[in-house]
Amino acid sequence: MIDALFFYLFAGVMLTSGLMVVVSRNPVYSVLFLILAFFNAAGMFVLIGAEFLAMLLVVVYVGAVAVLFLFVVMMLDINFAEMRAGFQKYLSLGLVVGGILVFELVTVMYGDVFSNGSLPIAIEIANTTQLGGVLYTKYAFLFQIAGLILLVAMIGAISLTMRKRVGVRRQSIADQINRRPEDVMEVVTMPSSKAQNKAKAGAGSVDHE
């Protein structure tokens, strides 16, 4: 009973915050609602016993990706009126795309993809172990390929945005670390204060600060 209660709680909050992501006027609110939606999705993962996926969702999407989203959105200078002007123009297109997605979901739900009983989750073994056992043996090559695709995307992004600027003064960290006191300052042995005072008294002036 409590499971069902939590399911409807998580599902309800997730759908509402999903809607708010689209409807919010302020883009920062949109991102904050997106984070709330991620959280509730993680809660649903916990409910079906997939605690590893739940934690991964929080670590990767909430802890890193959404932070960068928020970072960018907060720095943007957005004209809200201008943004809302396109709403009517894109409404029909949005409805078509949304309709197709709903149709696909319904066909999957009533098709025979999920009809062969419950999903195979063995409770006795921790699902971290299960995932690792499948991912690094049966699907090792696919896993490697996924990693390579991400690497290529990363290198692509760097090479697109990196430009060599001329005339920029850069710091040479090695030089900074290798700098020794002997290279830049001279240590002078001063005569003792007694001798100094004597010399100053001879000159006739002693200044105090």
């Binding site: 605690e51 934690m55 909430v62 802890g63 890193a64 932070v67």
Partner: peptide
């Protein structure tokens, strides 16, 4: 819980939201 260390890691990575 089975994923205790991941839970700790996840919570500590959320601390940044309060600050932002």
């Amino acid at each position: 819980i089975n994923v205790g260390i991941l839970y700790l890691f996840a919570i500590s990575s959320l601390g940044v939201y309060g600050v932002i």
